[in-house]
Write a protein that binds this DNA or RNA. Structure first.
Lengths: 346, 346
DNA sequence: CTGTTAGCGCATTCAA
DNA sequence: TTGAATGCGCTAACAG
């Protein structure tokens, strides 16, 4: 019923091997033969059998992309950039590769499950994006899995994730970015700063918070633990955390959020509380997602080059770009000062 | 080197066939045997070879999701919802399925290429999201491809895309939503309305615009073609189109945008032009993406239940939910009136 | 440059 | 309930 390579070979009057060579294009084939084969492919409307091809070649055209949440532009932008770079020459049969996007939802178990599934598929490469969960049992389990993937020939790249010995890493300087941001606020005169952190036990959360505290420390400002609230990386968490912070200390003059989405929630809470931004309370985010500039006032934040980093990760995963020296590159953020931060009220 | 089914069988002292049956669980196997097999799997750290399995079974655990742009939350939210429903029982060897997200960038060629790639992979199902390109040659090519996919046993579902005879469709009532939105503005007293449409030759663009025009027509307002500008579905297009509209008719009192992202660009352009929203000019969007409520003032828009529709599409694609009668379900939007629209200036 | 020959690892008949 | 045998469709040596 379905057309196979052998059918094409028969029609083109060549051997199956020759058809395979034409399709994969990694082998010298006479132009006239090639043309005959391609005509037969066309006439028979032949479509290569991917699984059969992958089985025989012991590798596939699938590239795994692990994200926490593909509905979040932070990950969507990276996934898009990675995906844009995985095509092109070098792939099997036409050079087109498929991106398998895996939503882990931040769950270590799902992360491991997906890695196993990608291992099962003999994925050509795997890119893990965003922060990692810091629970030692899990960290070791992931590391072991990455080692196995690598051993099986799957290229593993981390994008926006802390370095690990098992993989090439493009890591974001979350600590440095967090520090810059808080330094900016301190420079404006703020002394009572609320901090809305992400979920505990995530590297991104910890690093950004460490940067914040380093800035406070450097300025000789005591870090009041009551001014840090943890929550999820979403708008609602930002809203609620802000109300909580205002309850704990109505005199605070600035709120630093774990990311832009959280910052938007914070802005909403402040507005609903009748406070003006930045006159009463300054607000800052992190990431510089596209909507950050459309907040009113526009959000001061740390711009991460998500698209560039994703594209580079994609190229490295495809072997089209040299890995950074030592296998680790740190990608820095850029402080974007906008209208949401200003001098504290007198 | 790599562990195969046969290795597991040897260790468990059963035949390869039995191991296969245990792994796929679609076959009666004695409990004691099963346990022995599972232990061997564990001890050997065996991972099923997906391609081999797919080859033998003539189907895979891959589900294709075609989107215009995964970095756009409109698609990210749908993709996430689809993905959340494709796991679960019924899949091969553990019931886990992988989502292959294909960024077409709105290009018909890429759409076809990806469909072929998914056909090659013997995808279990394919979900096409968002509007379609209306160029007849391409429409027919896609239809033909969908027919072949369906013939090969791939379930095809459209989500937020106009119905086609080749597939089950959950279609958005873009026309109705567009009409409601403009009726709302007319009800407020607006008579000079600018419209920022999406790219030409896309169904979403056309339907929303038709709804807008139907509302104008019903109210006896002449549709001035100079008040419609086409552009891409992004912020920048909204910004530039707004400046153009203001140039063409400084007396307009409302701007309807093709979607929320475009609307944000429109808001920015109005602000930069020194106009107040909604006092000088009202603005409306479409989709009700998460950030719409954080615009200042909050954006009046039409809420599309992206997540619900995506989840349903995912279930239908997996055969876990009955397709709608006739294979077509229309998903309506809900008008969300917020602060960005008000009565026109006197 | 091209053909021949062997598997790749698994699912599924058919028997037992 | 289990085993033995066969083939899924293709690629990769190896010859020629």
């Amino acid at each position: 019923m379905t057309v196979t390579l052998a059918d094409v070979a028969a029609r083109a009057q060549v051997s199956p091997a020759t058809v395979s060579r034409v399709l994969n294009g990694n082998y010298p084939v006479a132009a006239s033969t090639r043309e005959r084969v391609l005509r037969a492919v066309d006439e028979l409307d032949y479509v290569l059998n991917g699984p059969a091809s992958s089985l025989a070649a012991a590798t596939s055209d699938l590239v795994g992309i692990l994200v926490n949440d593909i509905a979040d532009p932070f990950f969507g932008i990276m996934a898009s950039a990675i995906q844009s770079e995985i095509g092109g020459p070098g792939g099997r049969a036409g050079g087109e590769r498929l991106a398998v996007v895996c939503n882990t939802g931040g769950s270590p178990e799902r992360e491991l499950t997906y890695l196993t599934l990608l291992q099962r598929q003999r994925a050509a490469a795997v890119v893990l994006t965003g922060g990692a969960v810091e629970v030692s049992a899990h960290v070791e389990a992931v590391a072991a899995k990455l080692r196995k993937l690598a051993a099986a020939g799957t290229r593993v790249v981390l994008c926006g994730r802390p370095p690990a010995p098992e993989a090439i890493a493009l890591t974001f300087d979350n600590r440095g970015g967090g520090r810059q941001l808080t330094e900016h606020l301190i420079g404006l005169g703020h002394r009572r700063l609320g901090y809305i952190a992400g979920p505990e036990e995530r590297t991104t959360t910890r690093h950004r918070l460490e940067g914040h505290r380093a800035a406070l420390d450097a300025a000789g400002i005591e870090d009041d633990p009551r001014l840090t609230v943890h929550g999820r990386y979403d708008r609602r968490a930002g809203y609620e955390a802000t109300l909580e912070l205002l309850r704990r200390d109505p005199s605070l003059t600035a709120i630093v959020a774990a990311n832009d989405t959280v910052a938007l929630g914070a802005c909403a809470a402040l507005r609903d509380s009748g406070l003006r931004i930045p006159d009463d309370v300054s607000v800052a985010g992190f990431d510089d997602l596209p909507f950050a500039i459309d907040a009113v006032p526009a959000l001061t934040t740390v711009r991460l080059p998500l698209s560039e980093a994703g594209a580079r990760a994609g190229r490295i995963a495809m072997g089209r770009e040299e890995p950074p020296p030592g296998g680790i590159a740190t990608v820095r953020g850029e402080l974007m000062v906008r209208g949401s931060t200003g001098a504290p009220r007198a």
